[in-house]
Nucleic acid binder design. Sequence first.
DNA 1: GCGTAACCGAGACGGTACGTCCAGTCTTTGA
DNA 2: TCAAAGACTGGACGTACCGTCTCGGTTACGC
Lengths: 214, 214, 214, 214
Amino acid sequence: MVSKPAPDATRRSEKSRRAIYAAALSLVAEVGYPKTTVEGIAARAGVGKQTIYRWWSSKADVLLEAFLDLAEQTARAAGHDTAGNGTAGHETAGIPDTGDLAADLKAVLRATVDELLDPRFDAPARALTAEGVVNEQLGRVFVTRLLEPQLQLYVARLRSAQDAGHVRRDVDPRIALELFVSPLAQRWLQHTGPITYDYTDTLVDYALYGLAPR
Amino acid sequence: MVSKPAPDATRRSEKSRRAIYAAALSLVAEVGYPKTTVEGIAARAGVGKQTIYRWWSSKADVLLEAFLDLAEQTARAAGHDTAGNGTAGHETAGIPDTGDLAADLKAVLRATVDELLDPRFDAPARALTAEGVVNEQLGRVFVTRLLEPQLQLYVARLRSAQDAGHVRRDVDPRIALELFVSPLAQRWLQHTGPITYDYTDTLVDYALYGLAPR
Amino acid sequence: MVSKPAPDATRRSEKSRRAIYAAALSLVAEVGYPKTTVEGIAARAGVGKQTIYRWWSSKADVLLEAFLDLAEQTARAAGHDTAGNGTAGHETAGIPDTGDLAADLKAVLRATVDELLDPRFDAPARALTAEGVVNEQLGRVFVTRLLEPQLQLYVARLRSAQDAGHVRRDVDPRIALELFVSPLAQRWLQHTGPITYDYTDTLVDYALYGLAPR
Amino acid sequence: MVSKPAPDATRRSEKSRRAIYAAALSLVAEVGYPKTTVEGIAARAGVGKQTIYRWWSSKADVLLEAFLDLAEQTARAAGHDTAGNGTAGHETAGIPDTGDLAADLKAVLRATVDELLDPRFDAPARALTAEGVVNEQLGRVFVTRLLEPQLQLYVARLRSAQDAGHVRRDVDPRIALELFVSPLAQRWLQHTGPITYDYTDTLVDYALYGLAPR
DNA sequence: GCGTAACCGAGACGGTACGTCCAGTCTTTGA
DNA sequence: TCAAAGACTGGACGTACCGTCTCGGTTACGC
């Protein structure tokens, strides 16, 4: 857990918590992470500073929980879609398994591209990732709670592909998924190249069939 | 623009600049980026704060130049090695081309692993990367001046491999290199997995020969 | 006006205020006014700088209030003396009226001499006077709150003397008092001559009986 | 002497000195003493800072000499007047002696009133006096070089009046003059009352004939 | 149904670092 | 060969937030 241990959570003001989440996310999106201050969040949320420090240990911690909450809500919303898979949004419902691995991966990555280009997600996700790079404790929480669960969906899909004989048995799926996920992540984080459907499609092809002539 | 009357760079104190670089790098390594302050750098460098603000616009800016300077020196030092390959350090001299692409890539990535695990590089590089994630202007400089030149070495090596028929002609080398470079970068930045020689070797194999059965 | 939202004076820390007054007065006495800094006062008072800037607008302002407070306390203390006249200290209780004007004035001026030679009063009073010379706003407050009330005591005594026929009816007491008060003030401020009982006695005699032969 | 001892005065640039005096006086008049900086003086005078520090030890020192120079020039100019007494300006030529002491003193004090109300004199004189109140070393120079010589003119005139039997023989002229000079000085410095011809005339009458009924 | 214990908004507090300004010294450079 | 120009170390300025600490007020639970 990230919050402090002590106070009585049953008496906690739900209204304040929501207001703080909203204030934190909107401030990060508006003025950027470094200019977002605890004081500013408190002011915008119409809340005393102590109410923030009572439940969270730092600005990063607030934002982390706000973002987790946002992700959860988005996922829940996506879950109400047509039949269990939202094309955009968090794919907590799992990666489609049509039997065509390449197509399934491309579809999911295209959805991820959409998400990365949506400023509602970009600003806080970027801020939290940056903080996690430098603040290992927060980084671990971020990875454990948000990133790794997503990646495990790829692991599952790749294992299914192995069962179907579409992926070599000696391949470690946890490493394999990085071949197409990490490049996209790096382009997003470091602006090392454009982020397009073409690009992610290409990544999948290269990863599945290799660079060497067959 | 109504910028300040630019200071006269010809009269700049070389001694101060070096002291500031050294102080910035050592402080980041010792106490971490967030606790590194301009005041602290000035104090350790034995320099007035104004001398820092005269030449740089922010803590991040100082550290960026300090790190670029460090990289340059390291590269220069590596260039003086026996015959063009420093085992550790920046491979500005180019990636070896023995004709065996897999072996060459594995060697270089193993050197990179060493570098990433060296705290002298890790601390400032991590700090700058994090800052660049959130501060696009600085991020672009970081990428342009440091990261992209490194990546172009892979592009060159991959093109040579294409000429030799070891890599398919229709592969875009700039994208291809991301298959093994980005996963390593992400594991380093986000602590999403261990960083070992085995891991990088595996990445090269997966990337070259693909995940699908041949 | 777009002034700041005035701080809530009811929540003000009395302890801090006292500590700041004490620190300001002692620092001025020890190192002189120009070397007294807001930072120094804050440090000695064990107080954040902002606590000073929250309630005062400048170093001079702090010192002014500290001195007013000191004067008030001293006056209060003097008021508790035997029967309404402290021999040293502020004569807020009034100038004695024994019927002998010359004697009464000499007594009070001798007490003032004692005060002027006491470093506890000299240092801050001198500093404030100097600041008031150059900063009219502060000067007016200093005069209105401290100097003029003192001078009005002389006015009262001189009027009483007029009623008794010891001073000419056509004399303006507010001007008359300057004949013996201002010379003393100037010698003190500008070191234009020694400050002694003899000197003040002489001033009273000259002023009462004139320079011209009778 | 006020300047530092060392450098070769014969090689000193007369032009720079004048420019510095002019810059110092005009800056003090324009922005006040505290906001007048050595850097500002140097910039306005078109002079390097070192040229100021070479010949003077501080801002106050520069201004002191600038003002002495101004006084000297003004006095010289006054000396060229009709017959040895300028009605305005420094009365270095002496106090008139028409045989009517009261009239002579009133005339001179009226001229002083004019001077005190002239901003060209008021600003630097006030600044220097304030500095002298708090900086004893500078104060002594100011008094010795400027104030006391003026006061000695009154001493001379009063002695002459004693010889003529218009002032009592047992009166100390150095103290006597303070009865009318100091009140004027105090009103000027501390804004404790209006400064008018009437006021100075009254001071002379009170001082000569005393407050007590004759 | 009445204390009383907690949370709450508010914001003053002791601090740290910011980025700016100027003092006074030291160094370079052009006239 | 000097003096202008100005970079240097140093240190105070006044501001912005940090994280802690009261302060009343307002619930809401347990006696």
